[in-house]
Amino acid sequence: MFSLTACLYLSAFLFSVGIYGVLARRNILVILMSLELMLNAVNLALVAFGRAHAVAGAAGEHRGQVFAIMVLAVAAAEAAIGLSLLLLIWRKWRTIDVRDLCRMNG
């Protein structure tokens, strides 16, 4: 249906949106969403490669897909940690703006 190249372009686009979101946005929640977007963009690439390289019946046919499932699990754990840090910062200082988080420098 879709060619490998098309999937990779879409994945690269989503990844770039994620990078932009992390670097440019100030709201911590949006940054967390952008991080998730980066991981999911890679998932798309993995699944696309997995389908393109599949040899029917061969051992390890679905490596890319399995990798993507592992990434999903890791992303869930990461989101849990990220949100709890966000909660900690909100409870202490009533802010979710990254500009308020630059006390240390040098």
Binding site: G18, I19, M38, L39, V42, A45, F49, G64
Partner: peptide, 11 residues
């Protein structure tokens, strides 16, 4: 953020 790059490289 860096994990994203690591993972993209792996893909």
């Amino acid at each position: 953020f860096s994990s994203g790059f690591l993972l993209l490289g792996m893909a």
